[in-house]
Nucleic acid binder design. Structure first.
Length: 213
DNA sequence: CTCCCGATAT
DNA sequence: ATATCAGGAG
């Protein structure tokens, strides 16, 4: 029953809020554009690795214009340690160019517009929308949300868009932004992909996949 | 579906 | 050695 699943979801969210009271974005940024760059860099990469690169990066490239004018191979070297650096350097430069040409240097605050930027997909766009503008047009489904939503039995799907649709029915809208942050915190600390620590998980009794204590 | 990719934990 | 990390594009 969907009603029962919604209650269980609410219980899960409540427990995670108690467990991670300071849950939120762990990227370092001072502007919408810096957040956008950081989020592009964070694809398939730990936020820790991104945060090692961005302070120096934002010191070297101080404006959107600086990123738009960047030499690609130099930018690639500047971000090399995060991996997938060719795709990301291209995305950062082209997105900065597009931002200046089509949006007057202002990061758009709608999902439809922001995902038209090169290198910015639904996940990246949704992160910027939620974290900078406080807007939730959807729920961010990253690798942790994908894995843990399935383990918790909140969805049966593997496709991120379908998982998002299921979650949008289960999570109350006011929790859409915090939900992802809570799941990510939990995914990093307890429900780790390689070895879930079911023995120290506050969701043990609510999780159909848990190894019982 | 495949490719892109370095750092880190196991 | 290998799986995983706030994915996106062709």
């Amino acid at each position: 029953m969907i009603k029962d699943k919604k209650r269980r979801t609410a219980r899960i969210v409540a427990l995670l809020k108690k467990e991670y009271p300071d849950s939120g974005c762990s990227l370092k940024f001072k502007s919408a554009h810096q957040l956008l760059v950081s989020t592009i860099l964070s694809a398939q990469t730990t936020d820790e690795a991104v945060n090692k690169v961005t302070p120096g990066l934002f010191k070297k490239y101080k404006s959107i214009e600086d990123f738009a004018a960047a030499d690609i191979s130099e930018l690639e070297k500047d971000i090399a340690t995060v991996g997938l650096f060719r795709n990301k350097a291209k995305g950062i430069k082209l997105t900065s160019v597009e931002l200046l040409h089509r949006y007057g240097g202002v990061v758009p605050d709608s999902l439809d517009e922001i995902i038209t930027l090169p290198g910015v997909g639904r996940k990246t766009g949704s992160v910027v929308l939620g974290t900078w503008f406080g807007k939730a047009e959807g729920i961010v489904v990253d690798t942790h949300v994908k894995r843990i939503s399935r383990l918790l039995g909140l969805t049966e799907h593997t496709d991120a868009d379908k998982i998002e649709q299921d979650l949008m029915k289960l999570v109350v809208k006011t929790d859409w932004i915090i939900f992802t942050h809570l799941i990510i915190d939990h995914g990093r600390a307890v429900c780790i992909a390689r070895r879930p620590r079911c023995d120290s998980c506050v969701l043990n009794r609510l999780c159909p996949s848990a190894e019982r204590i």
